[in-house]
Design a protein around this nucleic acid. Structure first.
Lengths: 134, 134
DNA sequence: GCCGTACTTTACGTTTACGTAAACGTAAAG
DNA sequence: CTTTACGTTTACGTAAACGTAAAGTACGGC
């Protein structure tokens, strides 16, 4: 008797519309159970949704996201299959590392601008103090 | 006499089409000089293009990217303006840090799957060795 | 037995980020 | 002087990721 969720519950929790969740299902990203026509989401489905949203925040397309999270529960398979799977995982790893480098570069740039900003600010407030001393 | 670039040169260098670069100009992200009707890109324009493409890789919309890179060469301004600018910078910083957390979480997940994968692989090749010893 | 609420499918609309084609200008090369 | 190569504007087309509206189903409460 594991917990289940309605579509509205998940929508509220992750701040998306039910339409969005249905869309992900139509794209093959989630596959909830049905009770009649109603969708029943298990913890597993909720986890997948969370992964989809995380991928979206990182700028991946839904097609890419599907390929990525399908790596998570790929079939066991034999040695050759496992090696292929490992290869795919490593490709994705490198992608993520590249994104992290982009982020770190952006952070450095922003910090430089911020520093410049604080310098100007300091010299401004200094001028003011000097002005008051006359 | 600083170097300049044609649209095709930049397109080749960054592996995008001229159309894409013109689109960014139409969206107010780049503003090259003109020689008659021809666009002339300065190092500054090239840098902006690079920033745009980096933002795109990180999943920002062109509208967001414009707001971000506009922080880079915001007007000097007085103290109040500078503080506002610093605020905006910090907001973007936090966004980037959130993305980095998402990336790190994704990397951890992928590594876990990879480990699982290597475990299975090891036990498989082990079985094979045992089989050969009978 | 009807009401309200939540869910369903179907289908067309919208935004973003370009692609693509048409029609034209310009300048160096043969 | 006409190709050829590159550039321009204008405008419609398109794929992705949903939004939105319509019309119907299902179920607990009064």
């Amino acid at each position: 008797m594991t917990r289940t969720y309605t579509i509205a519950e998940l929508a509220r929790e992750f701040d998306v519309t039910p339409r969005t969740i249905r869309h992900y299902e139509a794209e093959g990203l989630i596959a909830p159970l049905r009770s009649g026509t109603r969708r029943i989401y298990r913890p597993r489905d909720r986890t997948r949704l969370k992964l989809v949203l995380r991928g979206r925040r990182l700028g991946f397309s839904l097609a890419e996201i599907r390929e990525i999270i399908d790596l998570y529960d790929a079939p066991a398979g034999e040695a050759a299959q496992l090696k292929l799977l490992l290869d795919k995982i490593m490709v994705r790893r490198r992608e993520l590392e590249a994104k992290r480098r982009d982020i770190d570069a952006s952070l450095r740039d922003l910090d430089a601008v911020a520093q410049n900003c604080r310098r100007r600010l300091a010299s401004l407030t200094l001028d003011k103090a000097e002005g008051g001393m006359r």
